[in-house]
Design a protein around this nucleic acid. Structure first.
Lengths: 164, 164
DNA sequence: CCAGACCACTTGCATGATGCAAGTAGATGC
DNA sequence: GCATCTACTTGCATCATGCAAGTGGTCTGG
């Protein structure tokens, strides 16, 4: 570690890891979209992340301990990315970002449904979701409740409503 | 508004406003350090923000509705920057960022004291702090409790302890 | 067992953001 | 009215981003 940091302030150090336009988008897709591979992250991205930026961010996030990568047994060159305990603990942060964005930006109705659910659910829901992420990404036992399914169902519902 | 956004996702839209290495540092200093002018933000900055970047961010944040600027009556060319309701509502976000940074980065002990206080205090403390910020920045009545003073006292205390 | 599609990246290049040092122009203080 | 202060701006080097295209392994159907 020769690289020097700007300051020892915890907010600053968080920003040094996540304060760019793409890192949290990647984590969001991994977390809420369960997109686990390079290809899934690249093509599923609403925001059309560039392939070189995605490759760079994945490396950087692995190096920072926010993701891990293991080989996909079904496809030798494919990697499967997982959240770590550190990135799972970003759930409340992302929930707040969603809540703030819903209130103070012109967010689309369908894409706000999940944010609303997370906001209304509060810390209890976040904890249930974090337990589920520990199951999906860290191999912990499967919890009874699937917040992931609830979020997806709410989103699909909103899409249908909009489709009418 | 010709400028197009990457997507309507509330998390993405929040990132488009705040997802750079400096915007939240400026808001943090305005919020927790009560640094209200260009000069105060420039010289007080732990992280040594460059003067052109600070000038650019102040403009951008004013345009985005996260800050307002008014003239300082005591000094004709000086401006006083204030938070808006939108940026005051970033308190929970910054509290979470501090909490995460404290847990997952090598944050310095003195600079973590305020983050710890905010984390332990939880939503009640955040609301009290937001009320105080509405007083300091928006002209609302002064609340009974000064969270700002509590945070500063805790920080000074930590400095003294370290000084021993 | 081989052609073609697929996948996970990399490369080149243009453009914009950042960082540093220095400069400027008006305001204030003595 | 001269030095100093304040709020910026400017020039320039370097780094980050975005786009389009390329590369080289890997799987798949016949």
């Amino acid at each position: 570690m020769v690289q020097t940091e700007r300051s020892g302030c915890p907010i600053n150090l968080t920003l040094e890891r996540l304060g760019d336009p793409w890192s949290l988008i990647v984590i969001r897709d991994l977390m809420f979209g369960n997109r686990r591979s390079y290809g899934a992250l690249l093509s599923g991205s609403e925001e059309k992340i560039a392939s070189n930026i995605l490759a760079d961010r994945l490396k950087r996030l692995v190096r920072a301990g926010l993701l891990t990568r293991r080989d996909d047994p079904s496809h030798r060159q494919k990697g499967i990315y997982s959240l770590t305990e550190a990135s799972i603990q970003l759930v409340p942060l992302l929930a707040h970002m969603g809540a703030w964005g819903r209130r103070h930006t012109a967010a689309s109705v369908e894409l706000s449904v999940r944010a609303e659910l997370l906001e209304v659910g509060g810390p209890d829901l976040w904890n249930a979701f974090m337990d589920e992420l520990r199951h999906l990404h860290l191999g912990a036992p499967r919890p009874a409740r699937s917040v992931f399914a609830e979020l997806q169902a709410a989103y699909r519902n909103a899409l249908v409503r909009r489709g009418d």
